[in-house]
Nucleic acid binder design. Structure first.
Length: 133
DNA sequence: GCCAACGTTGGC
DNA sequence: GCCAACGTTGGC
């Protein structure tokens, strides 16, 4: 099972909105690299929900409930369905991630503008540990 | 509010 | 096919 990280500004659509809705269609991704990651997601994969801009923290875990449909007429419509799994006991801030040497290679750090990014298994575990502290 | 990083567009 | 100009994202 693969792991991912998906960003949203909490003011436009945050973790609380996701929980309220019980899940959502993750669309509106325009960046091509991010789109490729969306297409690579499989049902059952898990993803961190990251609040960008005002919050800058990983706040919870989502599950990919439906993969992107194949061959859309318009690449802009690529989307997956995500559902909330669990809020972190404690959000893991960007500052903490940057301060943790084992997370230095995260795509989140290396390419800050990428809104949908893969997360390595080791990195996933480290972030989980930080969220439980 | 500023600016760095990155992507896209369009002129040549 | 190159590159300058411009737009967007997101951290600071």
């Amino acid at each position: 099972m693969a792991h991912w990280l998906m960003k949203s500004e909490p003011e436009s659509y945050g973790w609380d909105d996701l929980v309220r809705d019980g899940g959502t269609e993750w669309d509106g991704v325009r960046n091509n690299a991010a789109r490729l990651h969306l297409r690579a997601m499989k049902k059952g994969d898990e993803a961190f929900f990251y609040h960008s801009m005002s919050d800058k923290a990983v706040v919870g875990i989502m599950r990919i409930a439906r993969e992107a449909p194949p061959d859309p007429k318009n690449a802009d419509w690529v989307s997956v369905r995500v559902e909330p799994v669990k809020a972190h006991a404690r959000p893991v801030t960007l500052a903490e991630i940057k301060a943790e040497p084992r997370l230095a290679k995260m795509e989140l750090i290396r390419q800050s503008r990428l809104s949908v990014a893969p997360v390595r298994d080791e990195e996933w575990q480290v972030v989980l540990q930080l969220s439980a502290k």
